[in-house]
Design a protein around this nucleic acid. Structure first.
Length: 281
DNA sequence: GTGCTTGTTGGCCA
DNA sequence: GTGGCCAACAAGCA
């Protein structure tokens, strides 16, 4: 599930519960695939006794920064990617780790921060140092940053001109945080058929796509993750029925704008939903 | 049993 | 070297 806005929702959930607390104990499923490329034993040793300093989300990735009392200059950076089925929850301190709970951080405030991921496409990364690690600082500039310019999208679509626009929107190097449902939402709002080759879009269509990419990113963040320190009780509780999101998986789902039936097919290797009345090939 | 699934990566091929 | 496609990864669900 987790795309840009869901990642921010989960980050905030841990952040609001744990900011400033000390990690008293760490449980890991050391053999879980989510630890590929990092040694869970080192992670446990580094986090034990540290304090949750702050956190951030970028694209589909987040980082939590911990401070160790003895290490003045070096922070501990823990990166989390939620893959297809990852979740962050906050449970009571005595929470017993289930089979899919790969990391449990028990805090001085009597809480358990749980990272669970049944399918294990998610990933834990880890770094100690004063500067941010490459896996964090190398993430493409955010869609809502000034670097996400119309010209940069024009260039990128030209470079990927033969690929279906749906596949291009999923490329994290230019559209960081966009996943399957957000890509469909953007194309639907921009009235562009998902199977169109990226190089065939007119300047006006690219402009709509660029504008709607930013709109969907901005409104998904506010709707799903809330504003400021407020966190919705659930991920989907505030999503309006005017979004394609609310209709795309229903059998016999209808386009909320035209009232006509939605279509489904595999495009760019991914399940895609669109409104044929609105998005013409 | 079958056939899906909101993600990413590496290998193959043009 | 670049770009595009697809299988693989794994577990749950209908």
């Amino acid at each position: 599930m987790p795309e840009l806005a869901e990642v921010e929702f989960y980050r905030k959930r841990w952040h609001l519960a744990a900011r400033g607390e000390r990690i008293r104990h760490v449980d890991v499923h050391a053999q879980a695939r989510v630890f590929r490329g990092c040694d869970p034993a080192v992670l446990v040793r580094a986090l034990q006794g540290s304090t949750v300093e702050d956190s951030a989300a970028r694209a589909k990735q987040m980082v939590f920064r911990f401070r160790r009392p003895g290490l003045r200059s070096a922070d501990v950076w823990v990166g989390l990617h939620l893959g297809m089925s990852g979740e962050l929850t906050v449970a009571a301190g005595h929470h017993r780790a289930g089979p899919h709970d790969h990391v449990v951080l028990r805090t001085s405030g009597g809480k358990a921060l749980v990272f669970s991921d049944p399918r294990m496409f998610g990933r834990v990364q880890f770094h100690t140092g004063t500067a941010a690690p490459d896996w964090w600082s190398g993430i493409a500039p955010a869609i809502l940053s000034p670097d996400f310019t119309f010209a940069s999208v024009v260039d990128f679509l030209q470079r990927r001109r033969r690929a279906p626009i749906k596949a291009v929107l999923l490329m994290q190097e230019r559209f960081p945080g966009i996943g399957n449902w957000m890509a469909d939402e953007i194309l639907w709002r921009a009235a562009v058929h998902p199977a169109r080759a990226a190089g065939t879009l007119s300047p006006a269509e690219i402009r709509r796509l660029w504008k709607e990419t930013r709109h969907v990113a901005r409104s998904a963040l506010v709707t799903i993750a809330g504003r400021g320190d407020r966190l919705p009780r659930d991920l989907n509780v505030n999503i309006p029925r005017t979004w394609l999101f609310k209709h795309r998986w229903r059998k016999g789902g209808k386009c909320p704008l035209t009232g006509t039936p939605l279509a489904h097919a595999t495009i760019g290797g991914r399940t895609t939903c669109w409104s044929p009345a609105r998005q013409q090939e």
